[in-house]
Design a protein around this nucleic acid. Structure first.
Length: 492
RNA sequence: GAGGGUGUAGCUCAGCCUGGUAGAGCAGCGGCCUUUUAAGCCGUUGGUCGAAGGUUCGAUUCCUUCCACCCUCACCA
């Protein structure tokens, strides 16, 4: 709106700099509001964005919002003088202002800063959506919420200005990650960084993004996982390493998938997947405790109790319990017949592992609301996991499920280089049959294993989904600041 | 990739079925108001109705195509 440019010019004519360099704050809104007895009648300097204005001629109320929250201000002509009151009158909702004032309580009991000096810190040229709210008892009624999802995601800055609960989600995201770091650092883990640009991708089954390096004139891939690099570091002698990694997968997008996402992988030498299950329980509990002070959380209306120990249910037992069918040792035809009886559509190209996985995700996964470890998966689904110590055909692998969702993936890692080579060769066969997600053979990784990797356990946790769980958000786009979007046609 | 839905003022929406070129609230602008809080009262500006084409005397409304977004499903973490 060009009325704002006009105001800007009038301010400049008055000799006001609409974009000064600095403003020294002494306090934030929330501090003042929660310690009124200390601040009463004291002078404070605060700054923030004007979010509501109620003008009444020669005196006005407004709300200023800073990173901590909102506080009411009271501006009187006789208190700030002609010039400042004029500047205030030229202010719009959205303008960034600074002020010095006295902390008081109004007739209705609201803690308010009575302004003595009023300074414009940044004039807005675009109007921000005005969201009004009314508090009725405990209920907060929001009027004209800024709710268009496309705009919220494309212009996240606006979303953050206008929707305070969005800010809260992202603050929690950072706190979750720091809790995990703290947890791991306390246990002596080393945080490391490994390549994002990889000459060969691996460590997961997915299609990669491809790019090109000019000087080397070669194809490089954006990593789909960092597993093989972290294991090389275990070979190198580190006892426990972890990395928060941006991974990239060239697949579809929906409320659980973004092309780039954050994964935390960790590896521990001389331990197995039983150790890792204990670690996962403890880590999730620490996050819950740091965030909410207890082990109980609510996700989409479901109460979830993270108190350990979580049940550890073998995959085949879990399937049998839900469907009545024991899939263990069944061949392809038998599995297809069972899938048919369970009304699950399957594809000719699927192998045994894929069918089992499908039956599991259709029939069992949605039932796993309370934290559960599903353990011991078929070998064919897990080319990097070590064979089970007593169950032939299976590997020592587990996935924690919470609220019907897989929250991670862990194994006792395969450290036998000959077995690992055979598994890679099996993947190559799948690839030859047209499975473009099968993993390529990584000769250097095999060489590393041939130098000897200690017994090791490893874990991967999808951070975005973890944050969804702990912040009660239904879509991955609500926990990533700038989710992937088709580019908009630029219009001003 | 398949199905369903949505697109009208800066924001939230009505109007469309039953064609006659647009309305409300908030925001904005002007006025009154020195304890208001979804402030109030009076006045007022603002929209090539997602884009293109078709039917029609006439399309925001009916038809076709396209674009964008949302939801569900499929692939995947």
């Amino acid at each position: 709106m060009q009325a704002r440019r006009e105001k800007l010019r009038r301010l400049q004519d008055m000799g006001v700099n609409p974009y000064p360099h600095v403003f020294h704050r002494t306090h934030k809104a929330a501090e003042i509001k929660s310690n009124f007895d200390i601040f009463e009648n004291k002078e404070v300097a605060i700054a923030g964005r004007l979010m509501a204005i109620r003008r009444m001629g020669k005196a006005s109320f407004a709300h200023v919002e800073d990173s901590s929250g909102r506080i009411q201000i009271y501006v009187r002509l006789d208190e700030v003088g002609e010039q400042s009151y004029e500047i205030f009158k030229l202010s719009d909702i959205g303008d960034i202002i600074g002020l010095v004032g006295r902390v008081v309580k109004t007739r209705t009991g609201e803690i308010t800063v009575q302004v003595m000096q009023y300074t414009l810190l940044a004039k807005t040229l675009r109007p921000i959506p005005v969201v009004k709210e009314k508090i009725e008892g405990d209920k907060r009624i929001v009027y004209d919420a800024f709710s268009d999802k496309e705009m919220r995601y494309r212009q996240r800055y606006l979303d953050l200005i206008v929707n305070p609960h969005v800010r809260d989600v992202f603050v929690k995201r950072t706190r979750i990650i720091s809790s995990m770091r703290e947890f791991l650092n306390q246990r002596g883990f080393l945080e490391v960084e490994t390549p994002i640009l990889q000459p060969l991708y691996g460590g997961a089954t997915a299609r990669p993004f491809t790019t090109h390096h000019n000087t080397l004139d070669m194809t490089l891939y954006l990593r789909i996982a960092n597993e093989l690099y972290l294991k090389r570091l275990i070979v190198g002698g580190f006892d426990a390493v972890y990395e928060f990694a941006k991974d990239f997968r060239n697949e579809g997008m929906d409320r659980f998938h973004n092309p780039e996402f954050t994964m935390m992988e960790l590896y521990v030498a001389y331990e197995d997947y039983y150790y890792m299950m204990d670690l996962v329980e403890q880590m999730f509990c620490k996050i819950a405790e740091d965030l909410y002070g207890g082990y109980e959380i609510i996700y989409q209306g479901q109460k979830i109790d993270l108190t350990p120990p979580w049940p550890r249910v073998p995959l085949f037992e879990a399937i049998e319990k839900e469907t009545g069918f024991d899939l263990f040792g069944k061949n392809l035809d038998e599995l297809r017949a069972i899938a048919g009886k369970l009304h699950i559509e399957w594809d000719e190209s699927w192998g045994e592992g894929k069918l089992i996985d499908e039956i599991f995700s259709e029939k069992v996964e949605p039932t796993l609301i309370q934290p559960t470890f599903i353990i011991d998966y078929p070998i064919s689904l897990s080319p990097l996991a070590k064979k089970h110590r007593d169950k032939p055909g299976l590997v020592e692998r587990f996935e924690p499920f919470i609220a019907g969702r897989e929250m991670g993936n862990a194994f006792t890692e395969l450290n036998d280089p000959i077995d690992q080579r055979q598994r890679f060769l099996a993947q190559l066969e799948l690839r030859a049959r047209g499975d473009d997600e099968a993993q390529p053979l990584d000769e250097d990784f095999l060489r590393a294993l041939e130098y000897g990797m200690p017994p090791t356990t490893g874990l991967g946790v999808g951070i975005d989904r973890l944050v969804m769980l702990f912040t009660d958000q239904p879509s991955i786009r609500d926990v990533i600041f700038f989710p992937q979007m088709r580019p908009e046609q630029y219009k001003l």
